[in-house]
Design a protein around this nucleic acid. Structure first.
Lengths: 110, 110
DNA sequence: CGCAATTAGTTTGCAACACAAACTAGTTTA
DNA sequence: TAAACTAGTTTGTGTTGCAAACTAATTGCG
């Protein structure tokens, strides 16, 4: 197993992508969210939201349920257990990496 | 300005790439390192190290000096002030993001 | 000497990716 | 019934990250 600074190399790229990182963070807090909500919440375009969700679904990190609200399509998204686990692993890697960094110099004070 | 979870979207992609993140971390600690050292230290292939260094150089985050050690080529790499600044900015964004995450549930305890 | 092997890197080829724009399907409004 | 809106997918394109191939010079070694 690689140690803190180096372990960053093997980080899960599906999660590391900023748009998906944000999506997973939102889903982690909400349990369930629909497409339109995620659209507003993340600021992604519809196209990008769609493809990032597909990617997360393909990885098994979210499940997507297509239903209707009345006559209007409603796409519901939920994080899966695998998604939760992968996210926690990612977070641990990131935490370890950040912790391994030299302490930041205070700006302007010497 | 975007707040913690969302600011991750605008993170500096040059730095966000794991291989470059590791490279910058090494250079931050060492001030100067040669190609062969970075090769061993990061575990990257020569081709990838070369192109990641070029990318960092193009961004103005490292300077690369090609010299000789006796008759053998020696490529020296140093992080620039811009690189240091960009890295600190990146670290702040990452710190804020990590801090904004809900606290991790302890595994196996209910 | 001559030639294989090593060192130090760069270039090339390619599949995957992120993003925006265009498109589709259906619904509501006028 | 046509225009406009909603909800989402597909397509097109430039960029990327990686590995493999290549270059150029130096160093064994018989």
């Amino acid at each position: 197993m690689t140690k803190p600074p180096h372990s960053i190399i093997d980080v899960d790229r599906v999660i590391h992508e900023p748009a998906r990182l944000l999506l997973l963070t939102v889903l982690l807090l909400l349990e369930e969210a629909d497409f339109t909500y995620l659209l507003r919440e993340t600021g992604l375009t519809k196209g990008n939201l769609s493809s990032h969700l597909s990617k997360l679904e393909a990885a098994g990190y979210v499940e997507i349920e297509k239903t209707y609200k009345g006559k209007v399509p409603l796409t519901l998204c939920r994080i899966t257990e695998a998604g939760r686990t992968a996210f926690e692993q990612y977070r641990r890697t990131l935490d370890a990496f950040v912790s391994s960094l030299p302490t930041e110099k205070t700006v302007g004070e010497d």
